[in-house]
Design a protein around this nucleic acid. Sequence first.
DNA 1: ATTCATAATAGGAACTATTCCTAATATAAA
DNA 2: TTTATATTAGGAATAGTTCCTATTATGAAT
Lengths: 139, 139
Amino acid sequence: METKPTRRGSKQKMAVLDATKRLSNHPTAEDIFFKAKEEIVSISFSTVYRNLGILVKEKELIPISGPGSEIHYDHVINNHCHIQCRVCGKVRDMNVPAVDFSGILPSDASGFTVDGVCVTFTGTCRDCQVETDTKGEQK
Amino acid sequence: METKPTRRGSKQKMAVLDATKRLSNHPTAEDIFFKAKEEIVSISFSTVYRNLGILVKEKELIPISGPGSEIHYDHVINNHCHIQCRVCGKVRDMNVPAVDFSGILPSDASGFTVDGVCVTFTGTCRDCQVETDTKGEQK
DNA sequence: ATTCATAATAGGAACTATTCCTAATATAAA
DNA sequence: TTTATATTAGGAATAGTTCCTATTATGAAT
Ligand SMILES: [Mn+2]
Ligand SMILES: [Mn+2]
Ligand SMILES: [Zn+2]
Ligand SMILES: [Zn+2]
């Protein structure tokens, strides 16, 4: 039996993946929407969200959720750590070794089976450190 | 100059903290609301949220945000790790050493100053492992 | 005790990120 | 070309949280 020769990525789906890769700094769905719009002016928010969900399932992207309400997306899918600014919400990579969860037993994990780990540091980015009078709103 | 002898905790604030402690398993705002309601029948969601915010600022509680949309609260405020069920969203403690972030330099952190770290494993809790026919909806 | 200023509350509206729904359109197979 | 299905754009709905406001509780000063 063949693996079904199902439809390849649609133009929109590819635009979403491309936009995420070109933005590269852990963009939000909104960031991705506007970047993808540069390629496909008619693309909708709905389509971006749907394809982000698909791309996460296909392990082309990783979702990063932190203290802020928005989900950020990462096209670098290996296990690494992030830091998020408490003030402006921006997410960057952390240059520290990632936590290894391969040896964890269910007994360590309250009976859960473990399939991943997300290490997110919190702090203040350089832009937001410059006093609170210029309010840090940049991405 | 004295530290202002400001108002102690209100009845509602204490009820919120108490409810969180008695629930103990990383309850959500909604869980806390219903538990606090057992003590103060008139308490409102608004009051629960406001006091949760205050208690977090006062470091009486820690907020835990993960893949699911809801914030969970922990009255155990030392630095430890959690695991969240992908299916039902429940949060439990992880019996593994917490990540130490005290020695991290700004150079490791893309120029951020670091003030905390949140290590959240993901997986499937025991209740949600029993096939997908009994859909795992319990807390 | 009464007055006063202020802190906190209950209730509900507003907000926001995300998901869901639907009719229209694009695509690939037959 | 016809048909079946996948995907889309757009907008409505949802859900968790925050914000607003009139009312009530509290403690200090009189
Ligand atoms: Mn990354
Ligand atoms: Mn805990
Ligand atoms: Zn910042
Ligand atoms: Zn579960």
